[in-house]
């Protein structure tokens, strides 16, 4: 990992990215604190891969996505796209980058303008980037076909479509300008299970066909496992573990990842009867007032005194860049309640 420079190895990279939303109160709207929605995230995304991003509600997934697209201006940190820090770009430079960075939102109902025809919705990004009218219509019809809709749908309105079809419209709009990266923010969460598979398969097919790079955000860890090459787990605005898909799911190191995986019900009754669950106590603390030390310590089954006063860095713990931020990571085969190490883990020891 080139921690000190040499950007360009990755298609997309964030460095110590932070978003602290001010909390205002009183008649004078004074800032009385900050919601640390994203609090120091380093992510590297390779060309052509799907990086899954999981975590519970409010952990900062959508905010991170918006920071990368500059829909929010970051409080601190850097976002490198093809080796350049795009947070320093002016409007004109940003326009050029935007066509390469697209997003698909969770809610296929809210994200499409109900008064616009499907044709003009998909054409919008093409127009912004100066296509000719003729070309645009042809391109839109081609896009409709690519996402499995019919070119005849051109003049219809969003309300005439089912949820799954609407999400296809969102996908068509996102791929209209041949972007390099698409951030999918919970693209299937609002859909019925029988429809989710249609959209997941479509996204996977498009990735192969158009050499796309995805950041795939979801709270459903099964869907993320299915689609991702690597997976990052977030908790309270930070990435607490990142690894190759199978390594993360088969040998999670962070106690939070362990509990998260253990909490998910598997549609297999015999397996369910045999499973031993780690059930976490308590709720996720507020990002306005995150706990000191390891932010997971208030719920962690392995917590030691040391964790309460020291912040565990996201460090390499195993091969293939498997990183976790925990002083007492769960060694494979170990019971989660009992840390075996008596001294906190440090990289390189």
């Amino acid at each position: 990992m080139s921690a000190n420079g040499q950007a360009g190895e990755y298609l997309l990279e964030t460095r110590d990215l932070k978003m602290h939303f001010p909390i205002k109160a009183g008649v004078f709207k004074r800032t009385v604190g900050h919601v640390k929605a994203v609090d120091g995230v380093d992510l590297q995304v390779r060309k052509g891969e799907t990086l899954g991003l999981v975590g519970e509600s409010g952990c900062g997934k959508s905010t991170l996505a918006r920071l990368i697209l500059r829909l929010h201006e970051a409080t601190a940190g850097e976002v490198f796209f093809e080796g350049e820090n795009i947070l320093k770009y002016d409007r004109r430079q940003m326009m050029k980058v935007r066509r390469n960075l697209q997003i698909i939102f969770q809610d296929p109902y809210a994200s499409l303008n109900p008064r616009m025809t499907v044709g003009s919705i998909i054409a919008e990004p093409l127009r912004t980037h100066k296509g000719t009218t003729d070309n645009i219509k042809r391109r839109v019809q081609e896009l409709l076909e690519i996402v499995g809709l019919s070119p005849e749908h051109y003049n219809r309105y969003p309300h005439e479509f089912s949820g799954g079809q609407r999400q296809r419209i969102g996908v068509a709009r996102a791929i209209a300008l041949n972007p390099k990266v698409i951030i999918c923010d919970e693209p299937v969460s609002a859909l019925d299970v029988s429809i989710q598979a249609q959209v997941v398969n479509l996204l996977m097919d498009l990735q192969k066909e158009f050499d796309l790079t995805y950041i795939f955000i979801a709270h459903d860890l099964s869907v993320v496992k299915h689609i991702s090459d690597r997976v990052a787990v977030m908790y309270l605005g930070r990435v607490v573990e990142i690894a190759d898909r199978n390594q993360l799911y088969n040998r999670p190191l962070h106690p939070y990842t362990n509990s998260l995986l253990s909490a998910i019900p598997i549609p297999d009754p015999k397996l369910e009867r045999q499973r031993q669950r780690v059930v976490l106590t308590g709720d996720v603390p507020s990002p306005a007032n995150p706990p000191p030390g390891c932010t997971f310590h208030t719920r962690c089954p392995r917590v030691q005194d040391y964790c309460r006063n020291n912040v565990p860095p996201l460090e390499r713990q195993e091969e293939n860049g498997h990183r976790a931020s925990c002083f007492f990571p769960v060694v494979s085969g170990q019971k989660i309640e009992e840390p075996t190490a008596s001294t906190p883990y440090k990289a390189g020891e």
């Binding site: 029988s194 249609q198 997941v200 398969n201």
Partner: peptide
């Protein structure tokens, strides 16, 4: 049967293509 086959499973590697149900309810 289709419903069970259309969902990805946490305990499976993820290489198997999901079997979508065509159309909508």
């Amino acid at each position: 049967w289709s419903l069970i086959r259309s969902i990805p499973r946490l305990d499976k590697a993820g290489e198997v293509r999901l079997l979508p149900i065509k159309g909508s309810p």
